[in-house]
Design a binder for these strands. Structure first.
Lengths: 143, 143
DNA sequence: ATACAATATTTGTTTATACAAATGTATAAA
DNA sequence: TTTATACATTTGTATAAACAAATATTGTAT
């Protein structure tokens, strides 16, 4: 009785991991031709979301899906490729200001339809109204 | 209209990633005191599931949650710690046979209650019958 | 037998990640 | 004004991952 509840719990956890791993895998493959990692792509999208306003490193970190310990070096790579610009905040010289460049915007514009279609393909597999139910349930897990 | 459908799709994907990342993070923390990674833990559980029978490397790879390119070195680490034994298959010398050791079984016995509780805590946050619905929906994504 | 392809695992190398400690800057207290 | 504390980011280092190429073994066709 208790054992069965436990088993359902295990199944739920493992199914979640597998689904996420499967989606990540698919997205990474889709991004490969663009020479950018999923993490880098997400950071670029965060910067685009700023609509011209600067984002601090700490802000980016907070909004990342996978909080990682070394966002500096991840952004270094985006700067090397000229997708991101970095400058020191004048009001508080401890902070840095991050912007997406035009080249970065152009890259996202090229990637968007590919990723969008990829995501649609994945989510289409859900039963009718599955999307809303899934979102509701998943959100319960993270609070 | 179409835009809204797209947004829901994006939300579903991001929510899935976040939930999974959150669960992984929690599990990794729980495993830390035991000096073993989540991947290593999963491999150990696969080997325990063999109930004395050998598992080949390729079998282990197939069953892993995150298919990774280098299971050899992951298992090397488990062997270094004496949690796993490796030998060459006599029938087919290309294959290797993997077994969990007694020390490995003992480790899992110590870890099990910790991870179980951890998983229960996570899943308890779901609405009534959420567990079954979540599993059903997530499974739709991976096929 | 001999050569060739298929299978199973390992190794080399490059890149990414985690974690702790270090650096530089701002704020507050003595 | 010095000292201490908090904050924001960076760097050092050890470990892990991705990917391709290499090795070893088996099966199969000539």
């Amino acid at each position: 009785m208790y054992l069965q509840i436990k088993m359902k719990t295990k199944e739920a956890i493992i199914t979640l991991m597998k689904a996420s791993s499967c989606v990540t895998e698919t997205l990474c493959q889709a991004l490969k031709p663009f020479g950018i990692s999923l993490q880098q792509f997400n950071v670029l999208r965060i910067l685009r979301g700023q609509k011209g306003n600067a984002a601090n490193l700490s802000t980016v970190q907070e909004r990342m899906v996978n909080k990682m310990s070394n966002t500096t070096r991840l952004i270094d790579k985006l700067i090397d490729k000229n997708f991101v610009k970095r400058s020191i905040c004048k009001e508080n010289r401890r902070k840095i200001e991050l912007f997406i460049t035009e080249k970065g915007e152009a890259l996202l514009k090229a990637i968007d339809p590919v990723v969008d279609e990829c995501q649609e393909t994945i989510i289409q597999k859900l039963e009718p109204n599955g999307k809303n139910n899934l979102v509701r349930l998943l959100k319960q897990l993270t609070k």
